[in-house]
Write a protein that binds this DNA or RNA. Structure first.
Length: 258
DNA sequence: ATGGTGGACAATCCA
């Protein structure tokens, strides 16, 4: 089973890129973040014409998540279930067989100390409660992917000394994230790609960021132990297409065999 | 150097 994730920064603007990637890699599930459109505007027909199913939940201008798959997903739901009116376009869930895929777009947080930053920290705590309420970490196959807006370790950013502290790389965010994964999730990305210099995001506001590999690892793959036991490979799409697709995140794929 | 660029959407917000 191939599970992939991509912050597309507008599904309408990157539709061709997404469809090309789907055709080239044939994932079982592709999780999209920042689709940036309301459901009426989501280009579902284009996916369906290419033989894909897609479920989605968006809002005007910002956020928005989707799950693309060849086979129909079971138990599809959106949001954390503790309705704040915003978690729907940030969390999508579906199941293929006995494997549940969780796709989140974690709030970025704007600035340390801001209301949005506090919202981000609380969002992680809500994810922890959501996991506790819905899954058994020792028994369920659960794979959590998405733009988690956290760089948990120094090697997850290109220049840790300069970047610290940042909303995605500071003690409060790292602690809040650690309190989620301590529930019982393993870092599948680092299990297979432990080296420094492997990133998933390059800020297009920084000149030559991609070319100079001034990147961050903020797109993730985590899994419960039963799911992690089957992980075989994680890959980052390193096709040199950043210049023609300045979405600044890249595709990440994780292959599992159980 | 507190910028830079891109997307949505129509003056800024968000990343």
């Amino acid at each position: 089973m191939l599970i992939a994730t991509f912050n597309c920064n507008s599904v309408r603007a990157r539709l061709g890129i997404v469809l090309d990637w789907l055709a080239a890699h044939e994932p079982d599930v592709l999780a999209l973040q920042e689709t940036k459109c309301v459901d009426e505007q989501f280009p579902a027909e284009a996916f369906e014409e290419a033989g894909w199913r897609v479920v989605y939940r968006g809002q005007k201008s910002y956020n928005g998540v989707a799950l693309v798959s060849r086979d129909e997903l079971a138990d599809v739901s959106f949001g954390l279930g503790d309705d704040d009116g915003e978690s729907g376009p940030r969390l999508a869930r579906g199941r293929l067989g006995d494997v549940t895929i969780l796709n989140t777009y974690v709030p970025q947080g704007s600035e340390i100390g801001s209301d949005k930053f506090q919202f981000k920290l609380e969002w992680f705590a809500r994810v922890r409660r959501y996991l506790e309420a819905n899954f058994d970490a020792s028994a369920d196959k659960l794979v959590w992917v998405g733009d988690l807006n956290v760089a948990p370790e120094a090697k997850d950013v290109y220049d840790p000394k300069r970047i610290w502290p940042h909303v995605c790389y500071c003690q409060e965010t790292i602690d809040a994230f650690a309190a989620v994964v301590s529930w019982g999730l393993e870092d599948i990305f680092r299990k297979h790609l432990p080296d420094e210099g492997v990133y998933t995001f390059w800020d297009y506001r920084m000149p030559m960021a991609a070319q100079r590999n001034r990147g961050w690892r903020i797109d993730h793959v985590w899994a419960t132990a039963p799911a992690a036991a089957g992980s075989k490979e994680v890959f980052v799409d390193t096709e040199p297409r950043m210049a023609e697709r300045p979405s600044d995140h890249t595709f990440v794929g994780a292959r599992f065999e159980w």
